[in-house]
Design a protein around this nucleic acid. Structure first.
Lengths: 154, 154
DNA sequence: CCTAATAGTGGTTAGAAACAACAGTTGGTA
DNA sequence: TACCAACTGTTGTTTCTAACCACTATTAGG
């Protein structure tokens, strides 16, 4: 029985360390789901945003996901080459690219939603449903407040 | 007033996405504190572990921090070159390196503890003290359970 | 009309994380 | 005692996240 060495208590006292390590586990689960389909986290983020909001420009995608716009180019290239999204010049403003899901992309998103949900099982099982809701609610408040700060200073 | 674009609701519903983005903000705060001292997160993790536990082997450090042992080598090299930790062969088992804080390293850890605490302020201020405790408690339970799983399967 | 701002692209850099292969060392056992 | 398996640290490689900068094309405002 090789029990893990305990983590340093001084790190466990830091909320950001806890969040980081928890998300590390969540990521490991999710990445295995995505890897089966040749995707990485950035791909899922783009697909989810397009699913939720419909067609967006690359800049809007970057804003929505807190990505740097330059880092989106390659992700969108990948998805475009695989026929999952379509990139077309916006005739109203020819600087903009309109990015939208193709039918194949929409189909994949729907699959991913359920697969992603399933993959998170076993990762939060130790909490009751009520506790999971509390956790999500607290994390959302932290994220929202920090997003608001970030939006203000820009 | 350039308000941030909203995040995709389907991602906000995923606890691991929330944890990841929250830790991203926490990391940004902490990194600025560490960067002033020429350190990165991995350095702080090593220093904290040695502060909490005293001398450890590199393998024990890796286990405790959930790092791959190969990724620790360079971090410890850095700290050693700066005289913050000492690496000595364990005479009882010459495969092992005993890694321990030097007085300078101990002094830096003490500084970092307070600076890190300070840096987290403004990041969690929107939660009451009780809510912060709840958040930490829930995250710890998730982390502990996943650590236990991981320890078992290895 | 000119200038500033915006949108996308390309390139670079640093760090996190995972993995494979290897040498030296140790410990158990045949 | 000699061998074999396991462990420890090291090196190297690869993938992904993230944060920049510079550049071009385009748009919008004064």
């Amino acid at each position: 029985m090789t029990t893990r060495s305990p983590r340093p208590p001084s790190l466990l006292a830091q909320p950001s360390y806890l969040a980081s390590q928890v998300s590390k586990y969540g990521r490991r689960h999710l990445e295995s789901v995505l890897a089966e389909r040749g995707l990485v986290l950035g791909h899922e983020a783009v697909l989810s945003a397009l699913d939720d909001f419909g067609a967006l420009s690359q800049q809007q995608l970057a804003d929505s996901l807190d990505f740097d716009k330059s880092n989106l180019v390659a992700r969108i290239d990948d998805l475009e080459h695989r026929g999952l999204v379509a990139r077309t010049k916006d005739p109203a403003d020819r600087r903009r690219n309109k990015v939208e899901l193709t039918p194949a992309g929409q189909k994949l998103v729907d699959e991913l939603q359920t697969a992603a949900l399933e993959s998170q099982r076993g990762f939060l099982d130790m909490l009751s449903q009520a506790e999971q809701r509390t956790l999500v609610s607290l994390l959302r408040r932290v994220l929202d407040a920090n997003d608001a700060d970030r939006g203000r200073e820009q």
